[in-house]
Design a protein around this nucleic acid. Structure first.
Lengths: 140, 140
DNA sequence: ATCGTTGTCAACCAGATGGTTGACAATGGG
DNA sequence: CCCATTGTCAACCATCTGGTTGACAACGAT
């Protein structure tokens, strides 16, 4: 229930219909009936989808006579972009670091370290708690 | 089942534990046991999470003695970024267009329009109350 | 005042999801 | 050869999800 915001956004966009709704709402606000028109499901179903999007902060609804136009709140997308980019970048850096280490090893092959043959001590270190023993690693 | 790739990726990242797994894997490959260590769930549960991530193409597993190191495949993140950015940009363009229209209206207040107080006729048009037919039953 | 249109709420159902425990496959160390 | 370690598979369970239908709330029109 009190699912964190990021989970809600990802979850909201994990459905093709909801992604399509978002896509269409980038073009213009629209009412539930209009939004439902192209799909082969009941208006109620679409209403539920809209609720999910609203709970995720992706859309807002205002009241306007009988209709309730839905409006896209695109800023929330930035939340995801931020997360994704952060870790994509981090993954890239890891590769860069790994290259560096490999290069260094090639130049100075002094593996005087414990025989534990940790091949990529910097970039590959997994977790601190585990009985790290050796990591019979392939040199990739 | 044959859920589309994008849905699988979004869905995979809609879980905090799985996002954390991804985050940690940006730092280094790791085995399931190592990955499971910080969480308060069984190894089997983590194994399931990893399967979800694998099905989404976010990680790969290789075999290495008894262990199965998990490796992050960060490219897949680009899939999401592409989707998000596309529609974020589209939403922005819509705002830009809207500004243009508003500016034009200010310069050339060609009124005559019914006083229907539709403040944003172009970009916001939720539709002219068209006699949209009801969603007659199933298009099997 | 009543009716038609629009949309939400409620109850219900089938299937997916996340967790559990127990069994067992795979592999290297003794 | 046997066993300990590592991880997956299988069955089971509770909950969430997306869909349905039916009722009804809100509002404008007549």
């Amino acid at each position: 229930m009190p699912t964190d915001p990021l989970s809600r956004v990802f979850s909201a966009l994990a459905d093709p219909t909801r992604r399509d709704l978002v896509a269409r709402l980038t073009l213009a606000d629209a009412t539930p009936t209009e939004l439902a028109e192209p799909y082969d499901v009941s208006l109620q179903a679409v209403s539920k989808h809209l609720r999910v999007l609203e709970d995720a902060g992706l859309v807002s609804r205002r009241r306007e006579a009988q209709r309730r136009p839905v409006h896209l709140e695109a800023q929330v997308l930035d939340l995801m972009t931020a997360w994704i980019e952060r870790y994509r970048r981090q993954a890239e850096e890891r590769f860069a670091r790994l290259d560096t280490v490999l290069a260094a090893m090639r130049e100075d092959p002094s593996p005087g370290h414990d025989s534990s043959a940790e091949p990529l001590p910097v970039a590959t270190r997994p977790a601190p708690a585990a009985p790290r023993r050796r990591r019979t690693g392939g040199t990739t």
